[in-house]
Design a protein around this nucleic acid. Structure first.
Lengths: 344, 344
DNA sequence: ATTAGCAGTCGAGCGTTGAGAGTGCCAGGA
DNA sequence: TCCTGGCACTCTCAACGCTCGACTGCTAAT
């Protein structure tokens, strides 16, 4: 019994691996040949029938081999495949990345590009939220008579900005003073501590400047608030098309869904990483129509010294992907990025 | 003679317009019916033969109608089509954009998104270079024992940052003082004025801080230098796929070329706008293999009060596109954006 | 310069056919 | 109870041949 059920798993494994490699439905005969199993095709056929009954594989049509279902891939990912170690070249690429780390934004961008290259798929990365950041400096720069730019610099190196419209013309010097006041009062305050003490800020300046200060304090709050909104950057969309008709004509909707960051953000948010630090959504598990034929592999990375607050990176590709190497690339990337960001 | 040659132009016009609309080669008979011309199909056939000889149209195969060649589109764009005025809804969308202008980066992003929506094509926009900007403020923030972040704020509201590695541990206070010194010395200096007076900066601080100042001054220079490097942001890639098999299986390479910003940047750079303020590259005119089946419509926008320095925005779509409305959308967008950016 | 008519060409669509691949099932053997 | 060999069956895919329809190009007449 254990004997026959482990063989069934092996059969599933073989089907997934062969199908991923050849993109063609795999039949019983081909299977025993390629895998040099100790049993006859007929036996495999029985196993296949069983697997099909369990919903792990299907036959596209009567006289074709079987291909894995989403459930089949799921089982494969959960219980069968091992996460492959990275190749020498892959490690090297990541080290180069670590060495050239410039500023947080550039690092993100390089990371996502590299991940796309390594996996030959679309890579995505979630911008870290401000949770663990503190406020470092606030500056106010006049842009025109009625407009000014409020700039908030966080301890993580992230810089946020926002244009405000002032009620009245204020001279540059005064704006600068306001900036200093705000800096002073908010320095080292957690960026996620909203609301900020607007009243205290207002009363810290002379009456004539108070309306202006009100506008600016409001802007700062808005900036901090918006820091909680996730954003995604993405690379390697060309790989979607290259993946060879695998996704058929559906790549349009997929691109749309990806540009619609909301969808992906929700999905990433829902994903809980398993003991391996990874999480995978396959096919319908994405619970999104246009992502039916895709799978998402994601991992969390730590965004600062204080440990992870839950920003994620990952790839999205066809369900028919090499899960082993994809998962390892994603995991390794997450680790490296964590290291880079926390080491500074 | 003028009579017959103007009719030939009308025939070309009709072919282009019909083909753009129906995506099917257009024949002589269909043409006279749809256009209710005063002549017989046979006459049209003669004209078509002539147009074909001039290389303006081709027949995909013997028993099919004609489709325009790149040359045909070119003539159409140059001499025939009129730039269509925008619809009420389109104008409205742009006004909303103007009202919600936040900071330069966000405005760019919204602009490119809107343009993609309006044209149903891939929209691209070139980040303005720093040419007309001046330096507003420089800040140095310690990140870890050996690392610090150098932040440069420009008069345009653009904020650039770069991580540097210090030779030795420097306390926060000193770094801050260095930042102030740099700010002071470079204030109002043109961002494109490189190199900066590094020596003067170094000798402006006490000897103990001079090595650190050297590193930081170097970083500032690098930042300003990199401000001359163009960057592109892009939206609506999904429209490539949606454009309906028009581009066939070539959308992979196209996406690649677009992600490879260099290609597009070179192209945009080469393009000179005509009297209408627009410039168009069609098919092989892009002189890039993978863009063979695409056309690029671009316009320059002014990036500050001081008038345009040459940043561009535009769309890329299939050669078989509605040039009239695309051109008008691009031009209108460029004007609106210029207004937004210069009004502040 | 235009037109009508005619012959010729070629692709798209469709049903047929044959080959190949793969299955399901049954009956016999360990 | 599990495995195996064999056989009949099903279904896709590619190739083929066919017709139909849509155009064109040409010529002769107006």
């Amino acid at each position: 019994m254990s004997d026959t059920s482990t063989r069934r798993l092996q059969v599933l494994r073989a089907i997934v691996e062969d199908y991923v490699q050849t993109r063609e439905p795999v039949g019983s005969k081909a299977l025993v040949e390629r895998r040099s199993l100790e049993v006859s095709p007929a036996t495999i056929r029985n196993d296949m029938a069983q697997l099909e009954e369990e919903g792990l594989i299907v036959a596209p049509h009567t006289s074709a081999g079987r291909i894995p279902t989403d459930l089949g891939y799921r089982l494969f990912v959960d219980r069968i495949t091992e996460v492959r170690p990275l190749s020498r070249a892959e490690r090297r690429a990541m080290e180069i990345l670590a060495e050239t780390a410039d500023d947080p934004d550039a690092t993100m961008e390089q990371t996502v590009r590299l991940l796309a290259m390594l996996t030959n798929q679309v890579a995505v990365i979630q911008h870290p939220q401000h949770t663990s950041a503190t406020i470092r400096h606030v500056d106010v720069v006049p842009m025109s008579a009625q407009k000014a730019l409020v700039i908030v610099i966080l301890s993580t190196g992230k810089v946020e900005q926002r244009m405000v419209t002032l009620a009245e013309t204020v001279d540059e010097e005064s704006l600068h003073r306001i900036g200093l006041k705000v800096s002073e009062q908010l320095y080292r305050r957690s960026a996620s501590a909203v609301p900020i003490p607007v009243d205290a800020l207002i009363s810290a300046v002379e009456p004539a400047l108070q309306p202006t200060m009100a506008v600016i304090a409001q802007a700062v709050e808005t900036i901090l608030e918006s820091g909680r909104v996730d954003r995604i950057i993405m690379a390697g969309t060309a790989n979607l098309a290259k993946s060879g008709g695998d996704l058929g004509p559906s790549i349009g909707p997929i691109l749309e869904a990806l540009e619609e960051q909301v969808v992906l953000l929700r999905l990433l948010h829902e994903m809980q990483h398993d003991r391996r630090g990874l999480s995978v959504r396959i096919g319908q598990e994405t619970s999104h129509e246009s992502l039916q034929d895709t799978a998402v592999v994601a991992a969390e990375y730590a965004t600062g010294k204080s440990g992870g607050n839950g920003a994620k990176l990952g790839v999205v590709g066809p369900t028919r992907m090499d899960y082993g190497s994809t998962m390892s690339a994603v995991r390794a990337m997450a680790r490296y990025l964590s290291r880079i960001l926390s080491e500074g």
